[in-house]
């Protein structure tokens, strides 16, 4: 019994803590604003993407007809993203490929950043909510652009005028459900990894790598794909509803 107790809750085990830490605060027009670990992680992720982009740009300047080496990798990534957007959006793909590619790469590298020992920025609700709000703005803008005010009002009041509040809630629920889905998936991985590293810290040798493969790589990639896919589906729906 004593051995079990020592294994599962040793006396000097560290505290379970997977929260975001504030680094320093400053005064922003009377509000106290904190710079947190999420900001630092986002900057690291952005530096990784920026470094890759600069390297890719330098390589593509002297691109050859038959690609080889690094040029292959860059072309593969661009072709895969273009193909994904093309398959989901059809003729609207060209206009949205940039946005979808940007959020796809950012969310993917954010989710993978758990492998570098960072707390993934997408495990902060502020990040995922910002992403979802951007998507929501695009959906709403496309709705008004392609269906005009009359079409939007008609869509809200279908099938009947009294469905208006339910349709409104349905529209507002889109960004909340999208952001919560991504946030909760990444956070669940962070929580389980933290529990293993703190409560089972004297057993956590080598095998937690499989946790990272599942939660960071597999789950992270799937959630990235789902976020991009849902964005494309909603935007496409907003455009196509205006064409009938």
């Amino acid at each position: 019994m004593e051995i079990l107790k020592n294994i599962f809750a040793p006396a000097n085990s560290p505290e379970v803590d997977f929260m975001i830490k504030g680094l320093f605060s400053y005064n922003f027009f009377g509000h106290e604003v904190w710079i947190t670990t999420s900001h630092v992680c986002i900057i690291i992720v952005l530096l990784i993407i920026l470094g890759f982009s600069i390297a890719a740009k330098a390589r593509m300047k002297r691109a050859t007809e038959v690609p080889e080496g690094f040029q292959n990798v860059v072309e593969l990534i661009v072709e895969k993203i273009d193909g994904m957007v093309e398959a989901a959006m059809g003729k609207n793909a060209k206009f949205f490929a940039n946005y979808i590619g940007t959020i796809f790469v950012f969310i993917l590298i954010s989710n993978f950043s758990g492998l570098l020992g960072l707390r993934p920025p997408t495990a902060d609700y502020a990040t995922t909510f910002a992403l979802a709000i951007m998507t929501f703005s695009i959906i709403t803008f496309q709705k008004f652009k392609h269906q005009h005010v009359k079409g939007v009002l008609k869509g809200l009041c279908s099938p009947w005028v009294f469905w208006l509040p339910i349709n409104l809630i349905g529209d507002v629920a889109v960004p909340i459900s999208m952001s919560l889905r991504l946030f909760a998936n990444v956070l669940s991985g962070v929580v389980i990894e933290t529990l293993v590293y703190t409560l089972l810290w004297n057993l956590a040798l080598i095998w937690p790598a499989f946790l990272h493969v599942y939660f960071d790589l597999f789950s992270g990639a799937i959630q990235t794909y789902v976020f991009a896919m849902l964005t494309m589906t909603y935007v496409n729906q907003a455009i196509e509803d205006g064409e009938y």
Binding site: L180, N185, L187, S188, I222, M229
Partner: peptide, 24 residues
Amino acid sequence: MLLGQAVAETTGLYGLVTALLLMF
């Protein structure tokens, strides 16, 4: 299948978020 499963997972994740909020 993976897309549908990820969407179906959402309600369970709401429960998880509620539990985490209550606990931590």
